[in-house]
Design a protein around this nucleic acid. Structure first.
Length: 769
DNA sequence: TTAGCTAGTGTTTTT
DNA sequence: CACTAGCTAA
């Protein structure tokens, strides 16, 4: 069947590929076959994947197969593809090529402004709500006008329509697009410019789409347009693995493919080469409870393997404890194991226990590196330099670092800008003409002068992005402000910025024609999973969603509880199909496992500050008894936990639960010294994604907090009170006093120019002179 | 203008 | 519980 799919190169083709049936293999071999046997120019092949990571892997694998030409295949995600196209043709839509891409945070900021301009009552309508309504409209290619037409009766809908209109207006004014726009605008471009469309139709004679079940209507339209001429479209997907309905994925795209593309061939890949018989039986047992799926049965010639293990615990801490110990003792190497959960919040306890048992881990997801305040600040500078009319970015940095330009001043400038129909930045340039600014005008002029000088440099021949970022750090005083804070957190921020610089450097090395625009775009479109470094021997912790497309010899599915997985939302929803999506998610989780699968649940768990009691997930009950070994707790006092006459005995939970009354703080436990939080959010948020993001150190001994705490306290200082020292920013000065703190020396220095400063020794890097 | 505090809010999953 | 918007005081 795989071979048949590879050889079927002409015309529309739907490959229904069950989990682990080798669809990536089919795709890569198909590309290779097109190039080598059909003598198709690699230039004419387009492959769309779900993540940049998948795109990279695909290119790599094709590269190994064909030996030449793989680099000219167009392999990327929907979003990246669209940006590439838009950068070339966007002017046809009235934007300029250096448009900004707004992420979720930017969207919210913009929406707040929209709410202000339209005077929307946030009691009636939330920014989030409006944004999600708009997003789902965009997924369906419904523009503001059509939205308003459809909303005649409903007041709320009408209001959202107005908001939608204004939101788009402001995006356009900022020369910016949100994620959804990238797709929508590309479709618009193709529809309004037949010559452009025809160019890409000629270019992409062969199109392949991976994870087709997760495409939305806009994406479907995009592909249909591109493939309309040659119709050599091969889509690969599995309706049972559709897990992105909340993001607009339309399962109909796969179910109705044959109607949309008449004459389409359908090939099913039903043999699973990945998992053991027992794991597959467990997966099939669960998924067969779904209705409205394409009929198929996954089978395998693999051995039976060990039984799937389900184990229930008294509380979430016991669960995490067990899993961490299992990972350590299972005999599988760390990189061959993964812990999958429904919500990111569950990672915290797992991290804590991994640290406790010295289990090295890598965390995928959580707070994105690019969402960090300091990173967003620097990026906002870069955007301001690249895209002169991005008001949102200007607003973000105008007073960062502090320049004494506050809300009152900016309010006046904003009014002036809108009265004269100019961008915020242009209004700042004309600060002298803005009424009522007083002393602030001079401050603004200094800011504008700096930015303009950066702009000049950015356009000069031999500038590098690295220079630009370093320049921003030094000349605006951003670095100095952070250093002066002298907090460990400040240092983490600086390190994160250094990481961004590294990213910029490697980008400039890798890219053929590096540009600031392209760098910003790459940075905007990274997914959590893209940064997963598999070279290190660590266990992976991530959400079920992130795990899609991956496989591991041993998998732990944790938090198998009703109300958590399936989520409460899906249980209480009127729409029955929401449970089905959760079930597919469960199916995805189970089928990630190759050899061993452990599922766990906790009777008691802290959720949003309150203890919640739950019984095992209904999906656990759907597991076929023959493939699973159940290890449930005795039923508790009536009401909670367990189901029916629980088999098996209460294993491993004769522990004193009250001992964990305060199980929330990882510090102060297991003999670890109390540590300050690296950031306000505690676990799972600090550090960078490249070197040591959210990872415990592999060796046992070091304090287990990755980069933020690797500052080594020097055993002694080579200077003391009275000595003359020099500091990279503050110049020379005299040491007043040295305090020996727990983590570091705190040094007070009277600088000749900068006055008296207090700072941490390892951070300040003072030199004795 | 800014820092710091308080009260309110929302909590699935993500390109 | 964790974050954040908005208010208050300096």
């Amino acid at each position: 069947m795989q071979q048949e799919a590879v050889f079927c190169t002409e015309g529309p083709l739907l490959v229904l590929a069950g989990a682990g049936s080798g669809k990536t293999r089919v795709l890569t071999h198909r590309v290779a076959y097109l190039i080598e046997e059909k003598e198709v120019n690699p230039w004419n092949i387009m492959a769309i994947t779900f993540t940049n990571k998948a795109a990279g892997e695909m290119r790599e694998r094709v590269d190994k197969l064909v030996g030449f030409g793989a680099e000219s295949i167009w392999v990327s995600t929907f979003h990246s593809s669209c940006v590439r196209i838009l950068r070339r043709h966007i002017e046809a839509l009235g934007y300029s090529t250096s448009f900004s891409i707004y992420d979720t945070d930017d969207q919210r900021t913009l929406m707040k402004q929209v709410f202000k301009t339209l005077d929307v009552d946030t009691k009636q309508l939330k920014e989030r709500g409006a944004l999600s309504a708009i997003s789902s409209a965009k997924d369906k290619l419904i523009g503001p006008e059509e939205f308003l037409l459809n909303a005649t009766g409903d007041f709320r809908q009408r209001r959202i329509g107005e908001i939608y209109q204004e939101y788009q207006k402001q995006l356009k004014k900022n020369n910016a697009m949100d994620f959804d726009d990238l797709i929508v605008k590309t479709v618009e471009l193709f529809q309004n410019n037949p010559d452009v469309l025809s160019y890409y139709q000629e270019r992409f004679k062969y199109i392949m789409v991976d994870e087709y079940q997760d495409t939305n209507l806009a994406q479907f339209k995009l592909i249909s347009l591109l493939a309309a001429k040659y119709k050599n479209l091969c889509v690969v997907g599995d309706d049972d693995q559709s897990i992105y309905k909340f993001r607009g994925a339309n399962i109909e795209n796969i179910l109705n493919f044959e109607d949309a593309f008449p004459g389409a061939r359908v090939i099913k890949l039903e043999q699973n080469y990945r998992s053991t018989q027992n794991i597959l039986n467990a997966a099939n047992g669960v998924i067969r409870h779904n209705r409205g799926r394409k009929d198929k049965t996954l089978w395998t010639a693999n051995s039976e393997g060990t039984l799937v293990h389900f184990k229930q615990f008294e509380n979430a801490r016991d669960e995490a404890d067990y899993v961490a110990r299992q990972i350590r003792d299972s005999g599988f190497s760390y990189q061959d194991q993964a812990v999958l959960y429904r919500t990111n919040a569950q990672s915290r306890l797992l991290e804590e226990r991994c640290i406790y048992y010295n289990v090295p881990y890598r965390l995928v997801g959580g707070v994105n590196f690019y969402q960090r305040k300091e990173i967003k600040d620097i990026l906002a500078y870069l955007r301001t330099i690249a895209n002169g009319v991005d008001d949102l970015s200007v607003l973000r940095i105008i007073n960062v670092p502090k320049r004494g330009i506050g809300a009152t001043t900016m309010g006046r400038v904003t009014i002036f800008a809108s009265e004269h129909g100019m961008s915020l930045y242009d209004a700042l340039k004309a600060a002298r003409q803005v009424p009522g600014l007083g002393k602030a005008a001079a401050k603004i002029e200094a800011f504008v002068g700096q930015i303009d000088s950066f702009k000049v440099r950015a356009n000069s021949e031999d500038f590098t992005i690295q220079d630009l970022i370093e320049g921003i750090l030094d000349e605006t005083g951003y670095r100095q402000e952070l250093e002066a804070e002298g907090e460990i957190e400040s240092q983490t921020r600086l390190e994160n910025i250094e990481e961004l610089v590294n990213k910029a450097v490697s980008y400039e090395q890798d890219s053929e024609h590096p540009s600031l625009d392209e760098f910003l775009e790459q940075v905007a479109l990274v997914a959590d999973i893209d940064n997963m470094d598999e070279s290190e021997n660590r266990v992976t912790l991530m959400t079920l969603h992130s795990a899609k497309g991956l496989e591991f010899p041993k998998v732990y599915l944790v938090g198998m509880e009703d109300g958590l997985f399936p989520s409460m939302m899906s249980i209480t929803a009127d729409d029955k199909s929401e449970i089905e999506e959760e079930r597919r998610l469960c199916y995805v989780g189970i089928t990630r496992a190759r050899e061993e699968l452990v599922m766990t649940s906790a009777r008691q768990r802290m959720v949003n500050g309150e203890t919640r009691y739950s019984k095992p997930s209904q999906f656990v009950e759907e597991l076929p008894a023959s493939a699973v070994e159940f290890d449930r707790l005795e039923p508790a006092l009536s009401g909670y936990g367990g189901f029916g006459g629980g088999s098996g005995s209460a294993g491993g939970s004769g522990r004193k639960t009250d001992a964990y009354a305060d199980d929330s703080l990882p510090w102060n436990q297991g003999g670890m010294k109390a540590q300050p939080k690296a950031e306000g959010r505690g676990f799972g948020s600090s550090h960078n994604p490249y070197a040591s993001r959210n990872t415990a150190p592999a060796p046992a001994s070091k304090p287990a907090f990755g980069k933020a705490f690797t500052v080594q306290k020097q055993s002694s200082l080579d200077y003391g009170p009275g000595d003359r020292v020099s500091h990279i920013k503050f110049g020379q000065g005299t040491v007043k006093s040295v305090e020996d703190g727990a983590k570091d020396y705190e040094v007070t220095v009277e600088f000749d120019k900068a006055g008296q400063k207090k700072m941490f020794a390892s951070f300040a890097k003072l030199k004795k002179i």
